[in-house]
Design a protein around this nucleic acid. Structure first.
Length: 851
DNA sequence: GCAAGGTC
């Protein structure tokens, strides 16, 4: 029997599509990468009996990056990135997706691609194809074996229709995505590296580890700064209003609005007032009542959920989507990433509503609605991706955590509202005249709350209604005055407004919009203030104003859609991949060179707002070249700057850096410092120079002295290494000499920390090894009054893991030692080597490094 | 350490 391999874009779709096509008869197993599932069943394909095997990827299989040698920010000129060689790398290495796909493809004769029907999906088709092709059975000549299923909804009818009219994957659409990837990579990385390096090398208080540029994130920031500029340049204007209050013969008071609304000229306003100020009563001119309706919402899609989460629930879009995804995997709501606001034709609305009828919170309203009958939902847009977001099963408040409940609560209320009645109310407008001036008052009376029963924050007519009035009814003027006001600036942009702007300009997608908004916060370009309003920081403002001075295109929201338009030509087959790509790349390359050439315009703005590195920070440790103190620049990213020599040295990103008893690195004379941080209280000694420029090939960049194989330095691994780390492959557990008196053994590769010999006055690693386990012995000394050794001994030399009297002083709770000898793979890693690898070998290796 | 786009 022939085999048909079918691949969807995500595990959930593989499962629902196979359920439809197998009539629920498929058997399922977990894929060997742990993330995907494989469903199998027998059926027929193009007139022959076959075995179907359906699985999925998890989004993109591959992603584009530069080849390794371009990873160096120091050695590579960012301009080179416009032509640097790129390669496709596995998008998520831990999923081992190509290998998984290849293994499932073995012995398969046909391939049917069920990727999402958009350009990204088309691109993933070819990623899947590349992964499986060599594993599949050899195709017979003249027979088509690769197919693409085109579907617009995950419904029985649509999926079966797609299956019976398979087409071929669309290479043009896929190529347009390849072009987009290459363009975003080259442009984003070139600008990001250039401006990060330049400004971080000059200013000490930028407070951002990265000064990124991106074709989506930068226009996103641009919207926020644009609003900031409007607020800054706003000039308030004074204006005046006529405020009239009447009462119905000593009864209810009614406030009227002036039909002219407002007047910006005080003299004119006063003239109006003078004309009518002596009038003591008036009569109702007209009473107009009109039935009005507030329409029930359309079915819920992702951007609307994010908007509501931000403006109504005070949750960031990013966080709200994390919650929604969890609710989805737990089966409470449907797939939360969709642009569609139209329920599929055969969607079981009634069934979904019935699920909610026993809810303790809204059950009563749901039962009443079921009694009265559901309304037809409003027509929405079917984007052909996924159905709108709906509840999938009933949850109660105590089965979910607070934030999950708030999102679920909203999804349910919104869903019920879409099949509820519109809200209707009677709007009444009363008009009166005083001399030549007209005034109106409007009130509302609820007729049918409809869906607002569930979305009570949208309820109308709760304010006191107007009294019953008829034309010619007499009203007494109880107050008439000129009030003065000022026009006010707009508020800072809310997240909800920003989402709307991004959607309108095609900046990002439903899945990436929350990521871009999150990014501009992470980069310290904006902060989120009360009401989830986004206020640009000095850095954010300076960047955008700089782009506007040099090349406004770089921050214009129209730039993205212009590029997308070009890419669309590739997708439609109207333009050649290479010509569009080289043309567009050339434009950005020129823009890049123009930007570099004119960077002084942006730099002037930086100078106005930020302090030069030389005057930032406080003196910390001595430079090995000039022996003067280097300054610790504390704002992110923390680094050391030598004013004399002009160099800047990176330090670990987070955590505290302090000086360490004036020890110097024997290799470069830089004064050693101690870093401490992390959840487990890790710490290690580091040489600021070696941390940036490792002296030995086996010491990685960003390592402390405990990874340095210097043969005699007392901070190197050859003097501090105790044993192999039990948790990671090549790590060595080293004594941290800076940790006294709460001594610690710290792995020089992973974050294992072992507290040991607390309050000891001295701990030293000895040259001899334990005969039982191969670890180096330690000498532990205590002051007599503090001794924790047996018999209050002052000192004991032995193995930390084997010698009675020492082992109980080692807290192995984080790192359960596997016991026995250190694992293999220790060569060249200092003291983990064990007794059969004496230190002489180590010395020989080191000697080789120095040659 | 960079982008944006999928999704876990």
């Amino acid at each position: 029997m022939r085999k048909v391999l079918m691949v969807a874009e995500k595990p959930s779709l593989a499962s629902s599509i196979s359920a439809i096509l197998s009539n629920g008869q498929a058997s399922s197993r977990k894929g060997r990468n742990g993330a995907c599932h494989v469903h199998e069943w027998n059926g027929s394909f193009r007139g022959e009996p076959v075995r179907f095997r359906m699985t999925s990827v998890c989004g993109h299989v591959m992603s584009l990056d530069f080849i390794g040698k371009y990873n160096s920010w120091e050695r590579v000129d960012p301009a080179e990135l416009f032509s640097a060689t790129t390669e496709k790398k596995e998008a998520t290495p831990k999923l081992r997706m190509p290998e998984f796909l290849a293994s499932e493809a073995v012995g398969c004769d046909y391939l049917v691609l069920w990727l999402d029907c958009d350009k990204e999906g088309e691109n993933i088709c070819f990623e899947v194809l590349a992964a499986v092709q060599s594993s599949m059975s050899r195709p017979p000549p003249d027979r088509q074996t690769i197919f693409r299923a085109r579907f617009s909804a995950i419904t029985d009818r649509d999926i079966r229709a797609a299956m019976s009219s398979l087409v071929e994957p669309d290479e043009n659409a896929a190529r347009s995505v390849d072009a987009r990837q290459e363009l975003d990579l080259r442009v984003g990385c070139a600008f990001t590296r250039f401006q990060t390096r330049l400004f971080q090398g000059k200013y000490g208080d930028l407070d951002s580890t990265l000064i990124s540029y991106g074709p989506c994130q930068t226009p996103t920031l641009g919207f926020c700064v644009e609003r900031h500029d409007q607020i800054q340049s706003f000039q308030p204007e004074q204006y005046w209003k006529l405020a009239l209050t009447c009462d119905v013969d000593g009864g209810q008071q009614i406030d009227f609005e002036w039909a002219r609304v407002r007047c910006f000229d005080k003299e004119v306003a006063s003239m109006f007032l003078n004309q009518i100020k002596d009038i003591k009563s008036t009569v109702v001119d007209s009473v107009v009542s009109k039935e009005k309706a507030k329409a029930r919402p359309q079915a819920l899609n992702t951007v609307e959920l994010m908007r509501v989460a931000s403006s109504g629930l005070n949750m960031s879009p990013h966080y709200a989507m994390q919650i929604a995804e969890r609710l989805y995997t737990q089966g409470y709501i449907s797939y939360p990433r969709t642009e569609t606001t139209q329920y599929p034709e055969n969607f079981d609305l009634l069934g979904a509503v019935r699920q909610q009828r026993d809810s303790a919170v809204w059950g009563e309203q749901v039962r009443a609605l079921l009694e009265a009958g559901l309304r037809q939902p409003r027509r929405g847009v079917d984007a052909g991706d996924h159905p709108p977001i709906t509840p999938m099963r009933l949850a109660s408040r105590h089965t979910l955590d607070d934030d999950s409940w708030r999102i679920y609560d909203y999804v349910v209320r919104h869903f019920i509202a879409t099949v509820h009645r519109d809200c209707s109310y009677l709007s009444t407008t009363v008009t009166v005249r005083l001399g030549g001036q007209q005034f109106t008052a409007t009130g509302a009376r609820l007729l049918d709350a409809g869906f607002t029963e569930l979305m009570d924050w949208l309820a109308v007519g709760r304010a006191e209604p107007l009294p019953q009035l008829a034309p010619a009814d007499l009203l007494n003027v109880s107050a008439l005055a000129l009030t003065d006001h000022y026009t006010s600036p707009p508020g800072y942009l809310t997240e909800a407004e920003l989402i709307t702007l991004m959607e309108k300009h095609g900046i990002g997608t439903d899945a990436s919009i929350p990521v871009h908004i999150n990014n501009i916060g992470l980069r310290n370009y904006v902060t989120v203030e009360a009401g989830r309003r986004l206020v640009p920081t000095t850095l954010g403002n300076t960047l955008v104003h700089g782009y506007q001075k040099i090349d406004p295109d770089l921050v214009l929201p129209t730039m993205r859609s212009a590029v997308e338009q070009q890419l669309n030509l590739i997708a439609l087959g109207k333009a050649d991949f290479h010509s569009v790509l080289t043309h567009t790349l050339n434009i950005f390359k020129q823009k890049f060179h123009f930007f570099v050439k004119n960077i002084s315009y942006m730099d002037q703005l930086f100078e106005d707002s930020f302090s030069p590195l030389a005057s930032s920070g406080k003196p910390l440790s001595r430079c090995g070249r000039c022996r003067r103190y280097m300054r610790l620049v504390e704002s992110r990213p923390q680094r050391l700057h030598c004013q004399q020599c002009g160099h800047t040295l990176a330090l670990p990103a987070d955590g505290l850096v302090r000086v360490y008893n004036e020890s110097k690195c024997p290799l470069d004379e830089f004064e050693l410092v101690v870093w401490s941080g992390g959840k487990k209280g890790r710490s290690f000694v580091l040489c600021p120079y070696c941390y940036n420029h490792p002296p030995f090939p086996d010491m990685g960049k960003g390592s402390g002295c405990n990874s340095c194989s210097h043969p005699s330095c007392r901070h190197g691994v050859s003097q501090t290494g105790v044993s192999a780390c039990s948790c990671c492959e090549r790590g060595v557990l080293t004594l941290d000499p800076s940790s006294a008196p709460r001594w610690k053994l710290v792995c020089n590769r992973c974050d294992v920390v072992v507290s040991a010999f607390d309050q000891a006055s001295l701990v030293a690693v000895m040259p001899d090894v334990c005969e039982q386990c191969g670890a180096y012995l330690v000498r532990v000394e205590y002051r007599p009054e503090k001794s924790r050794l047996p018999n209050k001994a002052a000192q004991l030399t032995g193995c930390a893991f084997c010698t009675a009297g020492l082992t109980q002083l080692v807290q192995l709770k984080h790192a359960q030692r596997s016991g026995g000898r250190p694992r293999g793979g220790q060569r060249g890693r200092g003291r983990g080597g064990g007794p059969d690898q004496p230190r002489r070998d180590k010395m020989a290796e080191l000697a080789a490094f120095f040659m």
